[in-house]
Computed example of a mutant assay.
Amino acid sequence: MAIAEVTIIPVGTGSTSLSSYVADMQRVLQQQEGIQYELTSMSTIIEGPLALVFAAIQALHESPFGAGAARVSTSIKIDDRRDQPSSSQQKLRSVQEKM
């Protein structure tokens, strides 16, 4: 299972506030099947099969354009571990066990 951290920034919106765009993107994620996701204060974490994660990211990237943004900048980090099952929560537990 792949774990992706995605930050999508609408540019040219005429406002410094992005929360309405973030809310729209969370609604887009609710419609995606086969993934899990978590909103954080600075990004969104998406987990699932790599093809479905990429499909979700593409849908997220398109969302601000539909809401009037003239430009969208998307940053993606992907952790695709195939030697053992992994999840965002498992990664956090592993660090906490070592503290």
Rank of each mutant, 00 (worst) to 15 (best):
S41L: 12
A56C: 04
V72Q: 07
D83N: 12
R82I: 13
A2T: 04
I57Q: 06
S73D: 12
A67V: 02
M99H: 13
Q31L: 09
K98V: 05
P49K: 15
D24G: 13
L92I: 15
L60E: 09
T40W: 05
L50H: 11
V22T: 06
I35A: 03
G48S: 07
A4H: 03
A59D: 06
V53Q: 05
L60H: 05
M99R: 15
Q84T: 14
G66A: 14
I76Q: 03
A67Q: 15
S73E: 13
T74C: 09
Q58G: 14
E62N: 14
K77N: 10
G66V: 07
E97P: 02
A67F: 10
A69G: 08
S86I: 09
A2K: 00
S19W: 00
Q26E: 12
M99T: 12
E33I: 06
Q26L: 14
P85M: 00
I78E: 01
I78Q: 01
M25Y: 10
A69L: 10
G14M: 07
D79C: 07
Q96E: 15
I45V: 15
Q58D: 14
E5S: 07
P10Y: 10
K77V: 02
A59Y: 00
E62D: 15
H61A: 14
A4G: 05
K91S: 11
P64G: 08
A69F: 06
Q84F: 13
G48W: 05
A70Y: 01
M25C: 13
Y37G: 01
G14R: 11
E38I: 03
I45L: 10
Q32E: 12
S15C: 04
A2R: 00
G34E: 06
R81N: 05
A69C: 10
I45N: 05
Q31N: 12
I78A: 03
A23C: 05
E33H: 11
I76H: 02
R93Q: 15
I3F: 02
